[in-house]
Structure formats: C-alpha cells, structure tokens
Nucleic acid binder design. Sequence first.
DNA 1: GTTTGTGCAAACCATTTGCACGGAT
DNA 2: ATCCGTGCAAATGGTTTGCACAAAC
Lengths: 141, 141
Amino acid sequence: MHDPKELKNAGLKATLPRLKILELFETSEQRHLSAEDIYKIMITNGEDVGLATVYRVLTQFEQAGLLVRHHFESGKAVFELNEGSHHDHIVCVQCGHVEEFCNEEIEKLQHKVAEDRGFKIHDHSLYIYADCIKTSCPHKN
Amino acid sequence: MHDPKELKNAGLKATLPRLKILELFETSEQRHLSAEDIYKIMITNGEDVGLATVYRVLTQFEQAGLLVRHHFESGKAVFELNEGSHHDHIVCVQCGHVEEFCNEEIEKLQHKVAEDRGFKIHDHSLYIYADCIKTSCPHKN
DNA sequence: GTTTGTGCAAACCATTTGCACGGAT
DNA sequence: ATCCGTGCAAATGGTTTGCACAAAC
C-alpha cells in the first residue's frame, strides 16, 4: 500500500480508494490511464469501488496537482502522474500509442511565442503546456 | 451562397446543409466551431436542419480534407477550415480563447523528434501535428 | 459524533445510429 | 425508380450528481 502522507499533504483524507488509485499510477506500466482503465483494474483486483468514485478521485488528484489530465484524440480523458518535469507527447493517430519526450529548445520557442502574444505563463499551473504530436508509429496496436 | 465545386471535388453532393455549413466556416469570425455552435447559428438563421446532420456533415468534411478536428480542453470537438498550412494552437485554460501560430523551428524540431523515434510522418494526413499550448491569456472571456 | 467520502442509480451532455421520408439524377 | 441525404427520436458512451449509508478523524 501507499504512503498516506502524500495525500494528507494535498489536503485529502487518506481513504482506501484514494490510496489504491494513487498506488496504481505509481506501479502501472502504462503511464496514461483513463477512469475506465482504473475502474476495470480495481474491479479485477477484487476491490469494491464505484466508477463515480474513480472519477471523483481523479478530479481531486488533478486539482491537488498529483495528476495531469489529457484529452489526446479519443473522447475519453486520460491521466498521468504529475512529476513536475514538463514533457510533450507523440500520439499515433492510428493505434493511439503515446510516447513522451522533452525538448528544451521546443519549450523555449513555445514560451517565446506565448509571451510575444501577451499570454501569461504560470509556473504553478499543471497546464502550461500539453503539446502532442499526432502521427503514425511503428507499433502494432 | 457558396460555390458547389469545392464539394463536388471532394466527392460530395452539393446539398443545402453542406453548402451552408461550408459557407459558415468561410465567413464566420470564429475559426473554431463546434457542432453545437453551427447548429445554433443555423437554427437562428431560420434554417431547418437537424443536429445529427451537422455531425454527419462535419465528419464527412473532415474525411474529405476540408476541415480539421481538434479536441483542446473541453469535452466537445471543434472544427476549422483546412487551409493546408500547418499551424499550432495556444489555448487559454481559463477562458478557452484560442490563438494560432506558425513556427518553422518548432516544426522542424518536432519532426526530428518523431523521426528519431521511428514515427512515420505522412504528409497527406491532416493529423500530422496538432500541438497546442495551454496557458492563461490576457483576454477576458 | 461529526464530517467527509463512498456506492449505486439516475441524470447529463456530446455524439452516433436506425429508420422512414424527401429530393436529386 | 433508385440512390443518397435528411430530420427526428432513440441509443450510446463518457462523465456528473443526488442521496442514503459507511468510513475516517
């Protein structure tokens, strides 16, 4: 199980569903998970959780800065751990495969564009950038 | 009204809803429109159209390469005219305001990242890139 | 014991689909 | 006469909400 302190720091009671969901993000191979993904995994693990709770917890985690929400292509939102370091995404438009990458030059150029246009970059925000490249990838689905 | 040729070229019959919707994109101040946006405008203009038709036409236009679909932040998709020239988007996370920009350097860097990772860029695709910067902007909602 | 979180079911919103009618060829 | 496109209503899929019960402090 997971250390409850992380949750307390975020001002959230350390309840079972919250601990489990946070743990899931920290141990899963897949970095990007949807509410449905999480729900299914938990049910499979024999935990008695409701889909509504999963949605509520994910939103709370997002607001607390523990997770970042993305929308990519599909109709459904996916979440990933917010580890501070900003990164971009490459998304395959054919199979949905997602890869992450960091590129300082791109970041700098983007910041410059935003500033030139009077946009404010707030460093505390999780949402400063969330770029994704959409293309086709060499992975089979 | 609009020139039917553009539709014929795309292999689509020049019907009234299609002509009107295409015209809307070419004359509207707002470049980015949702299905709901379009439906409301048409109803207001006294046209007898169904929301389902709007969705169908938008999808057809996307497949025909006339429009590009984006997902940005909100739960709803928005569309814009596909004018060939690729551009990125800055989206304000507070008011939803969208601006477009082109930056050759960013494009090159992104292409390089994708190629280095074995992703294939298909030039005929509308979806090669659709990056957006999410930040807060100086515009009131 | 009080507050806060939870599961369930119903509600909601964007989008899609089935179907019978209507218009173009 | 056939084919395709349309409007409407119903279905769908992701997400949210109301409420009574249960868990955390």
